[in-house]
Nucleic acid binder design. Structure first.
Lengths: 351, 351
DNA sequence: CTGTTAGCGCTTTCAC
DNA sequence: GTGAAAGCGCTAACAG
């Protein structure tokens, strides 16, 4: 007799109905393995007795699958959830998982809390790893057997989803340089090996191309700059560590507050967030965009397209990246090294 | 001898080291239960042999806890991840969970996929339910024993986290009405029992106050309107089903395109997204804000504060809501019916 | 089609 | 301290 206060189990139910546990299990999992009368009897009795269906924990131990896919985010969850680009990626992932009866577990690389608890990670059937991990340590914590897809960075021997960073940046810079600027500035996102906000000097060491997409973006910018016959050393670089308004603002303020004859009249920004921050700060200072200052972004987030002037930017389809990664993880698509195309979008910020 | 291709288990490791399984388990879980020499020996050998630590599935079956907390979202994951307010909530939840070694599982109420797979839900140790579920059905699927906190709506006998919708809306409407408008309009968010976008008539049935926060927001607006001696029937209502630009736009366009002498010169909007959409569309039409049209929002999202004119709005601390809910679920705070205060923010959209 | 049974990998008494 | 043993709740052989 099942006790009052314990959650009813499959075995209890089987006992209660005078059938075998196998039949109950089959009623829930394999309709073809029993008569439909027995099945519906079991199902309705289950509902009546408050049996919620097989326990997910036990089921996942037994079968080895949990229908859970984990997304491991390089940034903190707080950042990733608030950033338009990464939440778009997540929503692409979620869309595919949802449609196939899987659920989404969020793990963050950059733990703010210190102690790394024993991994609830091993619960997931597969991993989508997004962006550069602060330590490789984290990656090696993941079960080596389980499927893994890397997005926006490279993991040895694993399928990846990338965008065409270099060509995209070449294209937008080429567009921007068609109308020859007096002074160019480039705003990079996390280019340096050690955190740094502000102007870049020769001293700083850069992250390798495998470790940051900023390298390929810069390559694209430089290719266009070279081609337009502009010496690289006339193009100052600034670095920004974190893609949020409060971190971008001080760096950009310093640039905008330069004397008129030193201030760049074209800023190539590696994200829309940076470009939008520049736009707002320029407006506040009465610097006209695009007359006094032309701006380009990267990402194509909505916020940049709903305002006037609209941002000239490169639209990357983050949700599609998420969908592709999810499909690979679920085995719906062949796991490959795939690269998505982007779209140049000409707005009024740099016509 | 452990086989080559199977993931190594705790038992294998114990065998290999010639110690008992209990000792290995203790080495990972209860440092005080064995000598520190044995412990470090076990730990280092584990690392050497590639044992990743106790399997989460098995552990959660055995202990009944998974260190996973699920957030059940009323909207689709795609919406929730892209919306500033709900992603801020999620990030508050994530912050607390992270700090306490828990992880976040995302479940959506509004399944786009039809077949509701047998719940991986029962894997979670607790549930945070956010916003009105489309069907109560969904709630009853959750294990009744496990802790549950409701955010922004009411679940019988469960702790809740709310904001002061009515007073907040009273306050902002009172502010807006201080400068007497010629014609007011109110833009509601999901007020009607059946989906509807556009003007509200007497015909439509409304959702109950337990089922939508829009009711209490409207109450607040009306209290101010009454107090300012404006007859309610002179204040037309519009309804918007979904808080995204593409759904808001057509409804608002219809309003803005009314003849000058019918168009409201004050729009009280139930979300910043609605107000921002109105702002953009007004700008496109050369309708000046606030001279020709004053606008108020609700939520206080960043996007509304980084642009000019800034939105006059009510700032709700969504991340704090998330944090509170998470703390209750983890048992760090007393489970209660709590209500957070909001802040009136006066921007240039309705000075 | 139905029932019996052997674990999935781990934690935790309980005796030593 | 340490080790042996009993399941957590379920699924998937397999035998009937």
């Amino acid at each position: 007799m099942p006790s009052h206060h314990r959650r009813i189990t499959l075995k209890d139910l089987a006992h209660e109905l005078g059938v075998s546990t196998a039949s109950v299990s089959n009623a829930f999992n394999r309709p073809d393995q029993l008569s439909s009368t027995l099945r519906s009897h079991i199902l309705s009795e289950a509902k009546r007795l408050g049996y919620q269906g097989p326990d997910a924990r036990a089921r996942s131990l037994r079968t080895g699958r949990s229908r859970i896919i984990a997304v491991v985010l390089a940034e903190t969850l707080t950042y990733s959830l608030n950033d338009a680009v990464s939440s778009e990626l997540l929503s692409g992932v979620a869309e595919v998982l949802d449609a196939h009866g899987h659920t989404l577990l969020l793990l963050s690389g950059r733990q703010p809390g210190s102690d790394h608890h024993p991994g609830s990670a091993s619960m997931a059937d597969g991993f989508i790893v997004y962006g550069l991990m602060p330590s490789d340590h984290l990656l090696s914590d993941l079960p080596p057997q389980s499927p893994l897809v890397a997005v926006d960075f490279h993991v040895e021997g694993r399928p990846t989803v990338h965008i065409d960073n270099e060509p995209a940046c070449y294209a937008i810079a080429d567009h921007a340089l068609a109308q020859r600027p007096k002074r160019i500035g480039i705003l990079c996102l996390r280019l340096t090996a050690t955190p740094h906000n502000g102007p870049l000097t020769d001293q700083q060491e850069w992250l390798s191309a495998e470790r940051t997409i900023t390298r390929s973006r810069l390559d694209g910018f430089y290719r266009a700059i070279d081609q337009h016959g502009i010496p690289r050393d006339q193009v100052p670089l600034w670095n920004i560590e974190e893609n949020i308004h409060s971190v971008c603002a001080p760096v950009i303020e310093a640039i905008l507050d330069l004397p008129d004859d030193e201030r760049p009249d074209l800023l190539l920004c590696m994200s829309d967030r940076i470009a939008l921050t520049a736009l707002t700060l320029a407006e506040q200072r009465g610097i006209r965009v695009p007359e006094d200052l032309r701006l380009t972004g990267f990402d194509g987030i909505e916020e940049g397209q709903y305002r006037a002037p609209r941002l000239t930017t490169v639209r990357q389809n983050s949700s599609e990246k998420g969908r592709m990664a999810a499909r690979m993880i679920l085995g719906l698509d062949e796991p490959t090294a795939s690269r998505l195309a982007t779209t140049l979008m000409i707005g009024e910020s740099c016509p």
